[in-house]
């Protein structure tokens, strides 16, 4: 059976500094996300696909990974994760605006296709689920060299229907590889609800078939997520093998800037979900706990907006790629053959 972590409340043994960092990372991701939507709606960025509502789990895992040492095979909603690991708002603004200096892809891929070699963030493509096997392979290599790095990989619950999901869990479990599989279950794959995606509500139950732990966590509870991230990453690092974590999250936006979820979801439900937003609730919790005092959150926001404004200006001023540069980097020689 999956171990349920949904009831976690309180500070989960976290000190105030960690909690403030959690909140700040989440807020930073949210503000950037909102900026990217705005740029899209203003016609300045052709596409955006959001992580809003997923921030808690992403930030929790990001804070427990060792950037540049651990391996990360993310998916397109993991904006918050990449920021915690060391990518910057400017990096992703350059990507959304398709600029030559976009570190993810030099303006070649749609935004939210993350990648950064320096941070061991493996370049991601669009096919759902393929990245899980790359994480398993990176963990295999680490295992062969006797290193204690951990490979993190994530997907939506829709992605867990792909064959590569099974193949990756199976392989990682056979060899007890240090892979942490995280399903960010927001209940929808574009418009398809979870009960048309799978016969049982918890993806984590499938862990049993591979003889590994399956953990369900309330992905809207940053402290619960942090604890699960800390424990599962530590477990994997200590050589006890892979873990399957399922974070139940909300998708606070349409699937992408090309989707309108009002076509397949009721207005009442969407309204109710807005009120459940993990970020605003976390702020209230931290203020109640006295971790944030009155004005702290607003101060943080002002400081982050400043960073974001500067990053936006710089990204908009950055050059587009030269047309002929499209021919480069097919093979090592870059000759286009």
């Amino acid at each position: 059976m999956a171990i349920s972590e949904t009831d976690t409340r309180g500070q989960a043994g976290l000190d105030a500094e960690t909690l403030r960092a959690l909140y700040r990372h989440m807020l930073r991701s949210r503000l950037l996300d909102e900026r990217l939507w705005a740029l899209n709606r203003q016609g300045r960025a052709p596409f955006w696909i959001s992580g809003m509502g997923h921030e808690a789990v992403q930030v929790a895992f990001g804070m427990n990974l060792r950037p540049g040492y651990d391996w990360v095979a993310p998916y397109y909603r993991d904006l918050g994760l990449t920021l915690v690991l060391g990518m910057t708002p400017k990096d992703h603004l350059l990507s959304a605006l398709a600029r030559a200096d976009d570190p993810n892809s030099g303006g070649r891929q749609m935004p939210a296709h993350y990648g950064c070699h320096r941070l061991n963030i493996i370049t991601t493509g669009s096919p759902v689920g393929t990245q899980l096997l790359h994480a398993a392979g990176a963990a295999l290599a680490a295992r062969m060299r006797g290193e204690d790095s951990v490979a993190f990989t994530s997907m939506g619950e829709g992605g867990s229907s792909e064959g590569d999901f099974h193949e990756a869990l199976n392989f990682a479990a056979i060899h007890k590889l240090a892979v942490v599989f995280v399903v960010e279950n927001n209940g929808f794959a574009i418009s398809v609800p979870w009960d048309k995606q799978m016969p049982t509500p918890d993806v984590a139950d499938r862990a049993q078939a591979y003889g590994i732990p399956g953990v369900v966590v309330d992905g809207e509870d940053p402290m619960a997520c942090f604890r699960v991230a800390r424990d599962t990453i530590a477990r994997a690092r200590s050589g006890e093998g892979p873990v399957l974590v399922e974070a139940k999250v909300l998708r606070l936006t349409s699937h992408s800037s090309d989707d309108d979820q009002r076509r397949y979801r009721s207005a009442e439900v969407l309204e109710a979900e807005k009120l459940r937003d993990c970020l605003s609730r976390f702020r209230v919790t931290l203020e109640e706990l006295g971790v944030l005092s009155a004005g702290d959150a607003d101060e943080m926001r002002a400081e982050l907006v400043l960073e974001l404004d500067r990053a936006t200006d710089e990204a908009e001023a950055a050059a587009l790629p030269e047309p002929e540069s499209a021919l480069r980097h097919v093979l090592a020689d870059g000759d286009g053959t």
Partner: peptide, 10 residues
Amino acid sequence: GVAIGAALNG
């Protein structure tokens, strides 16, 4: 897929 991941990691 695993070979790709292993190749990325050296």
